[in-house]
Design a protein around this nucleic acid. Structure first.
Lengths: 216, 216
DNA sequence: CGCCAACTTGATGGCTGTCAAGTCAGGTGG
DNA sequence: CCACCTGACTTGACAGCCATCAAGTTGGCG
């Protein structure tokens, strides 16, 4: 969902990369309120980014994974608005913000690429707003599954069989549902023969049906 | 909500402005699917930008008004993903995309400013996701009113008395509610003495109470 | 082996959507 | 200038989806 880089982009950014950071499950890459010092490019593992409202309620905004570049929201004020935590052990490359600024000044390609990535994220968030504002639970969850499938496919993994790295509560927060609703929907999908789910191991049995559900 | 420019920014962009365009209520600045040729800077009037899903349902994503720069979502693919329509007569400055690219290449200030504006929009959309994902009708509408108030204040208008330019349905779509729910909430707010509303003429009688409602 | 977080499933209630009817305001045409 | 018409709005009745509360199960980790 966040800006995703292809290989050419990653080469482009090679000179920006300062440190590779190994993270363990539960480690925070960024906490809301932190000063912008680094962007991060996810190399391995699945993360969760979320915002916290005045009332203390949280909304998961994305599940960044391999190839995703994160931290754009901090460009605005120089302060991060989202927190980013690792859902499993992984790696992330830190890109120094000041390095980025310096390189962007001289490289039109870098600035262009960053703007495109940000624009892409804008579009994604608009799609999320559509989901949250107009769809019902069934559609939301089926869209989520299809999207996860597409992401794993793009990374060269099986699009029909993968392990969810987030809890039901995380999924619920992402989709604007409660964890019980997510659990019930999974059960219903399984009963309908659309998926096979055991804890977090997931098989998509009928993607076409899921796709239809998601666009109804 | 979209990237908002202060006066210094606007001077910065002066050389980019190609044409000033007068629009009438109902005119489209942009239709989803259009090629990116122009950004628009709103000079007068209130607009509505929205996305349309596969199922045909629409989600209002913003109500751009004076000082707002719109069209960022098109940088990604070169194609607009949102449609933008005027809710009342107004003016918008068109900024040619190719001009922008040329100027951005030479002016670090311009590119920086654009990135900041996009980042700001990202943060706004994340806040919207929080609203749509976690809040109930009462909170959503009170937040909407407070935000409208703040925007009019920033433009030098009364923050407590203004005219809504959008229909109940538009508000509902923006907030993920149905128009009847919006109407009922307005009535309830009025009965509680928080607002005075007659058609689209609105007075905020107790902003503090509204603020509390929105953060509960 | 035991504990705890994660998950599932059931019962119940409430918020909001849906359907419906009626009012109101503004614009158009006669 | 007025009547009409249409879109916007309000309000009511009802239903359904999802949240909430609760209890029990499972699996992983120390």
């Amino acid at each position: 969902m966040p800006g995703t880089l292809d290989e050419a982009d990653q080469r482009l950014l090679n000179e920006l990369i300062v440190t590779k950071r190994r993270v363990r499950r539960g480690d925070y890459l960024v906490r809301a309120g932190d000063k912008l010092e680094m962007f991060f490019l996810v190399k391995a593992g699945v993360f969760k980014s979320f915002v916290v409202g005045d009332a203390g309620d949280t909304q998961v905004t994305a599940f960044p994974m391999q190839g995703d570049l994160i931290g754009f929201d901090a460009l605005d004020t120089g302060t991060h608005h989202t927190s980013i935590v690792a859902l499993e052990d992984g790696d992330a490359c830190a890109i120094s913000y000041s390095d980025f600024e310096r390189v962007a000044r001289s490289s039109a390609a870098v600035q262009r690429r960053f703007m495109h990535l940000m624009s892409h994220e804008l579009v994604n968030e608009q799609r999320m707003m559509l989901l949250l504002g107009t769809m019902r639970g069934e559609q939301r969850l089926s869209r989520f599954l299809i999207e996860q499938s597409a992401r794993y496919l793009r990374l060269g993994y099986s699009p029909t069989e993968f392990v969810l790295r987030m809890t039901r509560e995380d999924i619920g927060s992402f989709l604007g549902l409660k964890l019980e609703t997510v659990s019930r929907l999974f059960s219903r999908f399984q009963q309908a023969g659309l998926i096979k789910i055991d804890q977090r191991s997931l098989k998509l049995l009928d993607i076409e049906a899921l796709r239809q559900l998601s666009t109804q």
